[in-house]
Amino acid sequence: MAHVQLTPDELIQEFQSFDDWNDRFQYLIELGDQLEPFPEEERRDENLVQGCQSNVWLVARVVDSDPPRMELLADSDSQLVRGLIAILMILLSGKTPQEVLQTDVESVFRQLELQRHLSRSRSNGFHSMVRRIRQLAEQYLQ
């Protein structure tokens, strides 16, 4: 995610500046285009996120830096889902496990007003990703 250096507030402002769904989708797809390449060897069944209609691979680990931070890598065969992944990266990647658990992803997602444009199953897939990342953060802290 080297290219996407937005803060959550900037992200919300960007999305709120669009008048129609077309621009929102286009921006979401462009965000997805900036995802770091996903390592082919991680494209395995155990990295598939359940609850997504398209394939979503997610690798999340805590890097032993000081303080320890979460590193996220994810990919999907859907361009719109790749955009959602990019949003998750902006919100959660590089954060400490405590910060990950404190981030109100749902609130940001609501403010992006994306649920108006994405089907329920898509939103559910997004929330499955968030759950998986939070579980890993919790496991690390235990």
């Binding site: 077309n22 989708f25 065969d77 361009q79 444009h117 089907s119």
Partner: peptide
């Protein structure tokens, strides 16, 4: 080369109900 669900999502914005999957 495009996932059918992305197509369906765009079509939905245009008022068109199809199925993808």
């Amino acid at each position: 080369g495009v996932h059918a669900q992305d197509v369906s999502e765009v079509l939905d914005q245009e008022g068109i109900a199809i199925r993808a999957g």
